[in-house]
Amino acid sequence: MQEAGMIAAYAELLAGKLGFDPALSRRVRQEVEDHLWEAVAAEPSEGHGKAIQRAISKFGNADAIANQFATLWLVEQMKKLGVTVMLVIGGVLVAMKARVAWYALSQWELDEDVRAVAWLVGAIDAYAFWLAVIVGFAGWAYLIVRRPAPTGVYAAHRNLQRVLLLSWISAAALIVSVTSDGVLTALRLAGSAVSAQFLIPMISMAVEIAGVGILVFIVRSVVVAMASTTALLKT
């Protein structure tokens, strides 16, 4: 009974090191248990306990296996972040342009007394947005340069940390840009009576806020999950 527990304990040990991806962790745990029991069954001549020990020993070091999975996960997260940043920037741009086109189409002018404030906020908006675009493209360029999969968890970890930093800068710039858009939209809506005309500005703002929210959520979830891969670096 105690020997049988060795297989479960080994599978648990390996699965525990894959905490960065809970679904993968569950899957690997079941695969490892099945593999080890198969290996034990294939050695009927040996004693049960010896066969279990031999199967675990032949399976290899749990840290080394976890490192290989972690490397794959880190590379995947890098790609996911790069794609998310660019999609969100594209979404915010489309929403912004749609709103501005709607203002032009409906000849919706700003009140004279808020134009100075709107100009200042608009400048902040533009600079912040272009900062997000430039940093987003820098992230892409880094992804392309680092396209060949890193050979180890250390290199993959370092690369993802750099992409994360760029993603945070891009997300922060987008937050400033979307907040500025919100102020500009509020200035425009404040001077008008509530009507169906409000729909496009409201929807476009909702798209921008949702996009930035998704980006922040994904960046944060990668940071949280990276705690497990950081632990692997110390083993």
Binding site: L14, L24, V28, E31, V32, H35, A39, K58, F59, G60, N61, A62, A64, I65, Q68, F69, T71, L72, E76
Partner: peptide, 15 residues
């Protein structure tokens, strides 16, 4: 080869 190394390879090939 260490048998466990097959699983990251299978995962990578599946991805």
């Amino acid at each position: 080869l260490p048998e466990g190394t097959i699983y990251p390879a299978l995962h990578r090939l599946e991805q």
